[in-house]
């Protein structure tokens, strides 16, 4: 039968061996993390963005690298998913971008601070995360070959801004957000002129609408109008 002193030795030796291995692996990991996380791109702006991220405890609602709270969207690939214009508008006023949805705190960030947060998300988005976040499997949508997966499948036949901004609130082919009406068949309902005017300033077309005026260039609007008019 096992004696008490043998049990004690088992505990002490087992613990020491495992701790030694763990410390060895930690040293190795510390050496490799800079390359894997593209630490050469850690500019001052990114560092300040990280400080803002921590100071405001964004992790108390969101997850980043899959860590945090489960109340608001996972942000690891948000730069790729939404793009800088959308994020800038959202960080200025979350309510404008997601009217009537689950609420985010409205912060009074300066433009410089918003740039820092965006730089931080851009840096996070470039890390090699061993395959996280996973690509959705059960959808039959064509997924852009270059996309590293952002939770939402991105169809390649659409304008880039559409995949970044419009799907936050609109669905097409069953994918996207539910804030606005689906854009399936929108070309049947609306004329190209109406769509272009709408995108330039929704409130001018329909006062009091919940669709915000988005930061779109003329080129974006032409592209989007052409694309949407074809949706019949």
């Amino acid at each position: 039968m096992l004696s008490k002193s043998a049990a004690r030795s088992f505990f002490l030796v087992g613990t020491l061996v495992c701790v030694a291995f763990f410390i060895g692996l930690t040293v190795d990991t510390l050496g490799r993390v800079p390359a894997q996380t593209r630490a050469q791109n850690l500019t001052d702006s990114v560092k300040l963005g990280k400080k803002l991220w921590e100071k405001n405890n964004c992790m108390g609602c969101h997850t980043l690298l899959g860590e945090g709270a489960y109340y608001a969207p996972e942000l690891t690939r948000v730069y790729e998913r939404r793009g800088p214009q959308f994020m800038r508008a959202l960080l200025k006023d979350p309510q404008a971008m997601y009217p009537g949805e689950r609420k985010m705190v409205k912060y009074n960030f300066t433009d410089a601070e918003i740039d820092q947060l965006i730089a931080f998300f851009q840096w996070i988005g470039e890390m090699d995360l061993n395959g996280f976040p996973p690509k959705p499997h059960l959808v039959q949508l064509a997924v852009t070959a270059t996309s590293t997966g952002g939770g939402v499948a991105q169809a390649s036949d659409r304008p880039f801004v559409f995949n970044q901004m419009c799907v936050a609130c609109h669905t097409m082919g069953g994918q996207g957000g539910l804030v606005g009406p689906t854009l399936d068949g929108v070309g049947k309902r609306l004329t190209a002129d109406y769509i272009a005017a709408w995108l330039r300033d929704p409130a001018a077309v329909k006062p009091g609408t919940r669709m915000p005026r988005l930061p779109l260039t003329d080129k974006d609007i032409t592209e989007l109008t052409a694309f949407l008019s074809q949706q019949k």
Partner: peptide, 18 residues
């Protein structure tokens, strides 16, 4: 301790570690 110390690795899958 035999399992738990190195088991910390289950948090190091997808955060940018080897």
């Amino acid at each position: 301790f035999l399992s738990g110390v190195l088991g910390t690795g289950h948090h190091y899958y997808y955060i940018g570690t080897p």
